[in-house]
Design a protein around this nucleic acid. Structure first.
Lengths: 153, 153
DNA sequence: CCAGTCAGTCCGGAATCTGGACTCACTGTA
DNA sequence: TACAGTGAGTCCAGATTCCGGACTGACTGG
């Protein structure tokens, strides 16, 4: 057994991406955050193939991120609601959004702006909970037995 | 033309996911953050198929997130480094990590811990840059012409 | 009666993913 | 000199997934 057979790193990022690491999954969650909880509405707003979206929603429900709830008996109609775990994905969505706003906005700025209840447009910033300082790559070091390379640039 | 033909929402989240909305892409970026800049090392640490990783790295370089740099002439050897845009993905990675730490950690807690230079383990928190308050789904409302549903739960 | 909504399923072809083998061009060890 | 190992990929064929569009079934509203 040489170094070539080293096992992949076990890490929360990888585990999380196994569930939501796919375009349509996260876009479905975005839609629910925006208040669109119905299947057809999500299809229209995301542009996902109906088949694929149905599969993703099943995964998300199975993972405890969304809850499928019947809101009408005849005919049977369902809506998808965020669980606590789903609501905790909000930071992921907003940080993705901020990155896109910065690097992919065309002329005329970001295509969608959220307003925070403080009155300002939402600009999501990530801080270290302990000290309140903005998190930067160079300011963190891994604390694991698994060998790492040099700390990030 | 009925409502059924409504165009998908144009949004920074969707645009960003077109680039990094795939498991291996983000795991490759994670590796570079951890200091592993070489192709073979990334293959080992992520577990990605070499082919797929090579394709993702090309995409990431094309998108300006990574930079492919030759560090040895004979034989030709390359490493991948983060650009400014790549470094700005750190918040995305850390928020994904926090979610996984909370919902997917098995017994014995998170598989990897980062230490912030303040001395504490990193716990990434997202705040509104304007007011400093933690961002929550219920505290934001979309400001767009595109029709939305009811605000998120 | 007709159109529309809603929540999907079904289909077949296209695209992508996967693991493994293979290629060069070295370097380091025996 | 031979052999093993590293590094950065490419190539392949089979499996899987994705995609768009058509379809279903149970309604509602005009």
């Amino acid at each position: 057994m040489t170094a070539a057979t080293a096992q992949p790193r076990s890490c929360s990022v990888a585990r999380t991406l196994d569930i939501v690491g796919e375009k349509w999954a996260l876009l479905a969650v975005r839609e629910v955050f925006l208040g669109n909880r119905k299947f057809d509405e999500m299809v229209r707003r995301t542009g996902a193939p109906r088949d694929t979206l149905a599969a993703r929603l099943r995964t998300l429900v199975g993972a405890g991120i969304l809850e499928r709830r019947q809101y009408c008996e005849h005919p049977a109609r369902y809506e998808y609601r965020l669980t606590d775990a789903g609501r905790d994905l909000y930071p992921v969505i907003t940080t993705l959004m901020r990155w896109g706003d910065k690097y992919l906005a065309g002329d005329g700025g970001p295509p969608m702006v959220l307003r925070h209840h403080c009155g300002h447009p939402v600009v999501a910033t990530v801080i270290c909970e302990a000290c309140g300082e903005p998190l930067e790559a160079g300011h963190t070091t891994p604390l694991t037995a698994v060998p790492q390379g040099q700390p990030a640039t």
